[in-house]
Computed example of a mutant assay.
Amino acid sequence: MPLRVEETFAARLAARGRQTGMWVCSGSPLVAEICAGSGLDWLLIDAEHSPNGLESLLAQLQAVHGYPVAPVVRPPSGDPVLLKQYLDLGAQNLLIPMVDTPEQAADLVRAVRYPPHGIRGVGSALARASRWNRIDGYLHNAEDTLTLLVQIETVAAVENVAAIADVDGVDGLFIGPSDLAASMGLLGQQDHPDVVAAVEHCIREIKAAGKPVGVNAFAEATARRYIAAGVDFLLVGADVALLARGSEALAATYISSADDDARASY
């Protein structure tokens, strides 16, 4: 019996409006499943700064499947070989870090498309993406089953943001204030006025290009500021940060010597 493809993140954005989500960085399918049932709209399963390989990514995609949440996967880089493997695993929604130029963005579009429009290797008969060729017409329709998001994280990317947003095949742009702050010489100061101004500049440029724009904002006041600025999707927490802060609060409640200094979660 032919199978259907799940709804893409881009389709969710178009149909449902703003999407609020969280990071899943633990590498645990159990934690991913707990987060998937939280009521949030989407999860970012991260492999750039988290202990995730192909096997753990596969297990997490399987764990969240069937929940009303969109999984987006972030690889450590835009390496076409790695992207091919992620796509074959069944990752439909990709967020690529550190995209600074429209040329890089165009290369990523080619990396996620089959020839003649791209360079993705053909292995659908072996791959979960096509449910082992149980999805009719997968090879010819694969690009319609994917969402490609690129991340704006440097001064160079901010300067090129309009051109990056204009690349056909880029479905949305996501702003990373932490790396952007570092690129601006303001390491650890993602709420600095200059960083906030750069983020809001990018939001305006991306919205003007007609593309969805997202941002990372763990502080509620910052998140609400960017919501007011018009972001379409955002991340407001992380599994590991919730566990770290929650366990520290528990220790501070019952152990008088526990370190109760406030710590940043991002």
Score class of each variant (00 low, 15 high):
residue 192 H to S: 04
residue 153 E to C: 06
residue 98 M to E: 13
residue 2 P to Y: 06
residue 54 L to N: 01
residue 206 I to T: 12
residue 147 T to V: 06
residue 188 G to I: 10
residue 261 D to Y: 14
residue 141 N to K: 08
residue 86 Y to N: 02
residue 33 E to M: 01
residue 197 A to S: 12
residue 71 P to V: 13
residue 173 L to F: 05
residue 82 L to H: 08
residue 91 A to D: 05
residue 162 A to Q: 05
residue 52 N to V: 11
residue 5 V to Y: 07
residue 18 R to G: 01
residue 13 L to T: 03
residue 225 R to S: 04
residue 62 Q to V: 13
residue 86 Y to E: 04
residue 114 Y to V: 03
residue 26 S to E: 05
residue 112 V to S: 05
residue 235 L to C: 13
residue 38 S to H: 01
residue 175 I to T: 06
residue 254 Y to C: 11
residue 170 V to T: 01
residue 108 L to M: 11
residue 138 Y to K: 04
residue 213 V to I: 06
residue 59 A to T: 05
residue 81 V to N: 01
residue 161 V to L: 03
residue 159 E to L: 14
residue 139 L to M: 11
residue 43 L to P: 11
residue 36 A to P: 08
residue 78 G to N: 07
residue 156 A to G: 04
residue 9 F to A: 07
residue 164 I to F: 09
residue 176 G to L: 07
residue 169 G to Q: 07
residue 42 W to S: 02
residue 126 L to P: 01
residue 40 L to Q: 03
residue 41 D to S: 06
residue 154 T to I: 12
residue 168 D to C: 10
residue 200 E to D: 13
residue 164 I to N: 15
residue 198 A to T: 03
residue 23 W to C: 07
residue 231 V to M: 01
residue 101 T to Y: 08
residue 96 I to P: 09
residue 71 P to L: 12
residue 39 G to Y: 09
residue 32 A to T: 03
residue 100 D to C: 04
residue 202 C to W: 06
residue 63 A to M: 12
residue 171 D to Q: 06
residue 69 V to G: 08
residue 23 W to I: 15
residue 49 H to E: 02
residue 237 G to P: 09
residue 25 C to F: 00
residue 63 A to Q: 12
residue 240 V to L: 15
residue 181 A to E: 14
residue 249 A to S: 15
residue 39 G to Q: 06
residue 136 D to Q: 13
residue 241 A to N: 13
residue 113 R to T: 02
residue 25 C to S: 12
residue 234 L to H: 04
residue 264 A to R: 13
residue 172 G to M: 01
residue 242 L to R: 14
residue 187 L to K: 09
residue 221 A to Y: 04
residue 32 A to G: 14
residue 239 D to F: 03
residue 191 D to P: 06
residue 254 Y to S: 15
residue 100 D to V: 00
residue 137 G to C: 06
residue 188 G to M: 13
residue 178 S to L: 14
residue 115 P to S: 07
residue 24 V to K: 00
residue 148 L to Y: 03
residue 232 D to N: 11
residue 236 V to K: 02
residue 155 V to P: 00
residue 248 E to R: 10
residue 164 I to W: 10
residue 39 G to E: 03
residue 166 D to M: 00
residue 34 I to P: 10
residue 177 P to F: 07
residue 178 S to D: 12
residue 247 S to H: 04
residue 236 V to M: 01
residue 201 H to W: 07
residue 97 P to F: 06
residue 163 A to T: 04
residue 92 Q to Y: 07
residue 46 D to Q: 09
